[in-house]
Design a protein around this nucleic acid. Structure first.
Lengths: 101, 101
DNA sequence: CTGTATCCACCTTGATACTG
DNA sequence: CAGTATCAAGGTGGATACAG
């Protein structure tokens, strides 16, 4: 099933959140560490590496001093934006429903 | 973040696939066991129970002989259909891309 | 048919310390 | 800043047997 194929690539606890964080801006490693609540450095680099091999994100090393690294969605990974957006809408409704009672 | 709230409810390896399987029809336990490739009975009942407490699915016991149980998406859980559908589209494209090379 | 109980291997994740 | 190495702990999931 197609859904299963998608989930193969989006496995792990953090990938969806990382993609969501990259939806509107490129970000550096340390930015992601702040923006993706609760993630550890180890998991962030591990997930990013996986996503890079799956061509979901692009990694660029900037020759600043000290070196910084920029991550952004590929065109391909960007196709997930609408999925994420739908999910975010639902999550918002869900939160309201939970808080509401 | 809203996406994170959604993922809290959709954690685990199987929930998305189960919802996908229930998108168009109600199904019995044994149907799901066949349709969700690779899932074991333990995990299926465990995930279904969680999803029931989150009000994503509705469980109905039918007084047939022997007893059968029917699962269906709640109206609330049904709101995830569009997310699933987007994901399926992406998964299809992804599969083509993978096979294509 | 629809589950639950138990046992167990494996994987994932986190904390911490460390490197370039 | 951007990671990697190591260790430890808990969660995840499968097989099997069993119950209502």
């Amino acid at each position: 099933m197609a859904v299963h194929d998608a989930m193969d690539v989006l496995n792990g606890k953090w990938k969806i959140s990382i993609i969501a964080a990259l939806c509107f801006n490129k970000k550096r490693y340390s930015d992601l560490l702040n923006d993706v609540k609760g993630i550890s450095g180890k998991m962030l680099s591990r997930e990013l590496k996986e996503m890079e091999t799956h061509k979901l994100v692009k990694r660029t090393v900037l020759s600043t001093q000290p070196i910084t690294v920029q991550y952004e969605l590929t065109e391909y990974g960007g196709k997930l934006k609408s999925v994420i957006s739908n999910l975010a809408d639902w999550g918002l409704a869900h939160r309201k429903k939970i808080i509401g009672k």
